[in-house]
Design a binder for these strands. Structure first.
Lengths: 316, 316
DNA sequence: TACATTTGTATAACTAGTTATATAATTAAT
DNA sequence: ATTAATTATATAACTAGTTATACAAATGTA
């Protein structure tokens, strides 16, 4: 199909669907050719029953990768066709153990030669082709099991978008964003405290003039994340990392990670050896991020914030 | 899936179906991830509309390999969603030309980045794998277009079964089969004639004792095909190939071909240079077979059979 | 020019699966 | 010994396609 060359790989689902239709349409004709009264969709269930003497519906479903209702319906059709029957000898009355009937066993023998012919025909196509479809499907099953397509796409999205995120130095025009973004999350989870207002309303005086720094993450030139480095005096630490906030609208772009990395870098530039932070364990994604950035738990320092129940440090 | 290793290639349809389900399930989630109000199945139609400014439903269906009703339904859904609209400016009133609306154009722009991300993600999987699924699908589309799966399987069936066909010399026990098989086809298409009864009721006297031969095709030890070589005197031909009959139950096993080849071989053994046959053009498969065996049309010989309207010879 | 055939679309009914949910039987937990 | 949770199955309702068919418009032909 020329169409798929134009569209690109994102039409993989459509391409697979068409090939599936082509193959399964012929499957029905093949049973006809061999004069077997059999519906192609029965095959995986039927095959399982020729292997396992007795097996429940749910077990079959797991074995062949169908949903349980799908197998349930197929079983009913095959019972109606006289190929299988319920086998009463089970203690668990919920279970519906099924086995092949005489007729079923007969058909399984009749079908055997047919399956071999199909196998040879498909092997023939594989031999004719450069790229092995069967092996490719097997690999894809494995690779998508490891990491699903949605996961892979979402990672790619993050990667691309984080490239468009710029980390900039604080300017007066970002004061409103600095305040809003922080008020947003603080008041969602906690109460705003005195110390918060001071720093957020007047970062110039309370952070920058005291030797601190503020970085802003810009996405499409809009400030979507902020983080501050606050000078600590009379302490083993040089700076506290604080007031980190990312707009919920800009989630999934690794903005927290980029800000954290940039802040650590900035601290190093300023000659710092160790930085410190305070947080609360109910902020699980934040705590995770801190660990990823290399922070480790420390204990016993004083803090003006009620909401603090975890303290961490990063050795630069 | 372990299952597929056990079952073998004949479960290719099932394997494709499962992979299709896995991929298309994630496709829906991907649109959600990008916040686009869009149904995956719309995509091929939508894509075509972004390429072609104006296009009819049937043209779209051909382009993307769907049935026309499928596209018809998708178009209706997309019109309801406000993505496309009917474009009145067509003379042919049967045609329903459709174009993207403003909203549709907007979404096509929004979707662009998403498609690129999917493309990158899928390219990633292809890069991770040894067997290229995308390329394999392309090859299979081509190869199955050239010769369908049912055709390939049916050829394999024929090939295998013809191996189980044995060509044997005539024995008295085959007289009944020789008669029945011939009466069957002759009386279906024509009337039995005097010359038929003579030869069929008493092949010993009328064929063998006069220097002719009869060969019998056996499948599972049952006679399923017969053919005679009748000595011709006072003629440029050494033998006439006649009374060829194959049981309809044993069709598709190349029995006619095997008998014809064996008869020609036998004639050569007996020192013949040219053999002759008479037939009727309404027996198309038979005439085809004779051509395949190397016979060519000749004209103007006398014949005792009313049903004869074509005469052929084979130079050995 | 009138009639038959072809073309373009829509609709109905089907297929092979799915998810959601109800029910009964069994197992686990207090 | 109850009660709660889990398991096995069946059923209903949905999805993304299909084929068969009806109907109107356009085209071809005697």
């Amino acid at each position: 199909m020329e169409f798929f060359d134009k569209v690109g790989k994102s039409a993989l689902g459509s391409r697979l669907r068409l090939m599936t239709a082509v193959v399964t349409d012929d499957a029905a004709k093949i049973y006809e050719l061999y004069g077997v009264d059999f519906v192609p969709k029965w095959f995986p269930v039927f095959y399982t029953l020729t292997e396992e003497r007795e097996i429940t519906i749910t077990e079959i479903a797991n074995e062949i990768g169908h949903s349980q209702p799908s197998v349930s319906k197929i079983i009913q059709e095959m019972i109606a066709a006289g190929l299988i029957e319920e086998s009463a000898k089970t203690e668990d009355k919920r279970k519906n153990n099924v086995v092949l009937t005489e007729k079923g066993i007969l058909i399984s023998k009749k079908i055997k030669q047919q399956l071999e012919d199909i196998d040879v025909a498909i092997e023939g196509i594989i031999a004719e082709s450069k790229h092995n479809l069967w092996a490719a499907l097997e690999e894809w099953e494995f690779l998508l099991e490891q990491k699903s397509l949605i996961k892979r796409v979402s990672e790619q999205k993050k990667k691309r978008e984080s490239k468009d995120v710029k980390i900039a130095e604080y300017k007066a025009e970002y004061q409103e964003a600095f305040r809003t973004l922080n008020v947003e999350w603080i008041s969602t989870y906690f109460e705003m405290e005195e110390a918060d207002y001071k720093a957020l309303d007047n970062p110039e005086d309370y952070i920058l003039k005291k030797g601190g720094k503020i970085l802003v993450a810009l996405y499409e030139n809009e400030p979507v994340g902020v983080c501050a480095l606050i000078k600590m005096n009379n302490s083993e630490y040089d700076f506290e990392m604080a007031k980190m906030a990312v707009s919920p609208k800009a989630q999934g772009k690794s903005i927290g990670w980029l800000l954290g990395k940039a802040i650590a870098e900035k601290a190093k530039e300023l000659g710092a050896k160790k930085i410190y932070l305070e947080s609360n364990t109910i902020l699980k994604p934040a705590i995770n991020l801190y660990y990823k950035l290399g922070f480790e738990k420390v204990f016993g320092l004083e803090t003006p914030y009620k909401r603090c129940n975890i303290q961490m440090e990063l050795v630069l």
